[in-house]
Design a protein around this nucleic acid. Structure first.
Lengths: 124, 124
DNA sequence: TTCATGTTCAACCATCCGGTTGACCATGCC
DNA sequence: GGCATGGTCAACCGGATGGTTGAACATGAA
């Protein structure tokens, strides 16, 4: 299992927000807020299969929101606040856009938009 | 007319995060940061059909991230930062990171704009 | 070795999502 | 009225998502 390849920041934002869009995954994150947990223990309170929870954890890990470390036959899951911080900062900047740091904000947006802005609509 | 929120806040978070998970929609939000826009003008820079953009705007509106008001035959779209703030508050529960400070934002920018960022947090 | 535990894999299924196209409705202008 | 413009609707399509089940793999215990 190789670590996820570095992705452009807009893809990382995609992954983080998509991961957060599911209530089960948000619940898992809140559980991990208290302590690291094994996969089976994460799954316990949910009314779905272990395999399903395993998939959810994979998605959270892919988004960088958690890390997983296998010790013995138990795989431990740990909250990784950094990815959340990025997205949180993105949102805060949006939610309270003061004139303050608009320069920096625009540089950031430029980067975020870079790939999906054609910026050159085909002439008709 | 039924005012907003027939649905629990859980679903609202679902909608907000899901809406933010798409780069086109984040791009639209950033455009609306500068000024209110008509649907056609929103669609202009994108290499996709007007109908597709219209759908994206519908999703953003459903999530409460924008509002739409029809004046004449033009439908104006306006950023609604409140929904963002709500989700932002949710996220702050997770970082023990301090409440809203743009210092964090600047640090993020520095890291994000660096030419290449570390692939993954090194395992400990 | 054998067995139980922890976790993932593979195949499958139903539904959702993002996009297209073409028809359609609404409005403003000549 | 007639027509161009602004925008949505409906049907469709391919691919992603969220769940299931059963088999398989990995490790620790007896």
């Amino acid at each position: 299992m190789q670590p996820p390849l570095p992705r452009p920041p807009q893809d990382r934002l995609d992954a983080v927000f998509a991961a957060l869009a599911d209530p089960t995954r948000r619940a898992i994150l809140s559980m991990l807020l208290e302590d690291d947990m094994a996969v089976t223990d994460v799954a316990a309170p949910f009314a779905m299969s272990l395999a399903a929870i395993s998939k959810h954890l994979g998605i959270l890990a892919q988004a960088g929101l958690i890390s997983q470390e296998k010790r013995g036959r138990v795989k431990w899951c740990k909250l990784e606040p950094d990815a959340l911080r990025e997205a949180s900062v993105w949102m805060q900047a949006f939610g309270q856009f003061e004139p303050v740091n608009l320069d920096a904000f625009e540089r950031f947006l430029e980067r975020d938009l870079a790939t999906d802005f054609p910026a050159d609509p085909p002439p008709d």
